[in-house]
């Protein structure tokens, strides 16, 4: 009695597969029309990924001669173009990210908390804020440069090409992203947690601060870091601020003059000397590695703190 069990099982599996195919219509997928469509989907995927890969590989090959320590530790050099480096740009970009995060993260999280946990959605001003936020996310980055120039003038700064100026521009640029992702993260926290906390006698503030916000940290961190990795590659708003390119000292504070990596790359690609173009290609890879590092950090944070309910 027990011997036919195994073939039976196989039969069942085959039958189930056949039935599934019939039930889902998968078996009829192989009409010419659907094959063409499937081909188009594959082509789109292939095209997007291939173009990106090609770009990265060709850039890496262009810069292959310059993956050395001098690229990171030397300043931009015209006297010895073959040893030119991006020290000022790399450190400048790091300071810039520090400044941007300091400005954008608290304001962004606070705004999102207000809109999600406290705001009365029926008030016209809250709806107006929402509408503005969605529009702000689509504004070209150059406009934020102009906005930062105006803000710096209001704050009384004569010179706008300093870390603070760049940080204001980039913070404005990524604020909508941070606010939107933080709101998503807060929304993903089950309301049972809030209700439970409130039922135990906690105030709304205590509930938000001790329950909702900690539970939303992975989402907030991911959104913030993705926002920062977009900001680090921006050159256009910095150009408008008059950020210099020829800088041969390390920035030493938020009021220090500086240069950023994307600006140096932009400048070097238009120089006539082939050495600079090689160095620029190598610097593009450095920038990509920095962005990749930030994205990895985002994934690590998300995985480490992620909760399931």
């Amino acid at each position: 009695m027990s011997t036919p069990v195994i073939p039976d099982r196989a039969n069942v599996a085959a039958r189930t597969a056949r039935e599934t195919v019939q039930a889902t219509g998968r078996g009829r997928d192989r009409t010419p029309g659907s094959l063409v469509f499937l081909g188009a989907l594959w082509f789109s995927l292939f095209f997007g990924v291939m173009v990106l890969m090609l770009l990265i590989v060709s850039t890496a090959l262009d810069g292959a001669g310059r993956f050395d320590g001098a690229l990171l530790t030397n300043y931009f050099s015209r006297v010895r173009p073959e040893e030119t480096g991006f020290r000022a740009g790399i450190l400048g970009s790091m300071w810039l990210m520090l400044g941007t995060a300091t400005l954008a993260v608290p304001i962004g999280i606070a705004s999102a908390l207000y809109l999600e946990e406290f705001a009365d959605r029926h008030r016209w001003y809250n709806r107006l804020i929402e509408l503005n936020l969605q529009n702000l996310a689509a504004v070209p980055s150059v406009v934020y440069g102009l906005l930062a120039v105006a803000t710096m003038a209001l704050l009384g700064f004569q010179v706008t090409g300093i870390v603070l100026g760049g940080a204001i521009a980039l913070a404005l640029l990524i604020l909508p992203v941070i606010i939107i992702t933080t709101r998503e993260a807060l929304r993903a926290v089950p309301s049972e947690i809030r209700f439970g906390s409130l039922a135990l006698g906690a105030t709304v503030w205590q509930t938000t601060w001790r329950q909702t916000l900690p539970a939303a940290v992975p989402g907030i961190a991911t959104g913030t870091i993705l926002g920062l990795s977009r900001a680090i590659g921006e050159a256009a708003p910095l150009l408008l601020l008059g950020v210099a390119v020829g800088v041969r000292f390390d920035p030493n504070g938020f009021l220090s003059a500086f240069t950023a990596l994307p600006m140096q790359i932009y400048n070097m690609t238009s120089q006539p000397q082939a050495e600079f173009q090689t160095a620029a290609a190598a610097a593009i890879i450095v920038l990509l590695v920095m962005i990749l590092g930030m994205n990895t950090l985002a994934i690590v944070i998300r995985n480490k703190f992620q909760k399931t309910w």
Binding site: Y75, R78, G242, R248
Partner: peptide, 21 residues
């Protein structure tokens, strides 16, 4: 920029920024 680099070799305390607006 070249002048800034040559000067920096002699006197790194002078912080020259060169832009290209």
């Amino acid at each position: 920029d070249a002048a800034a680099e040559l000067l920096a070799e002699e006197n790194p305390d002078i912080r020259v920024t060169v832009g290209e607006a």
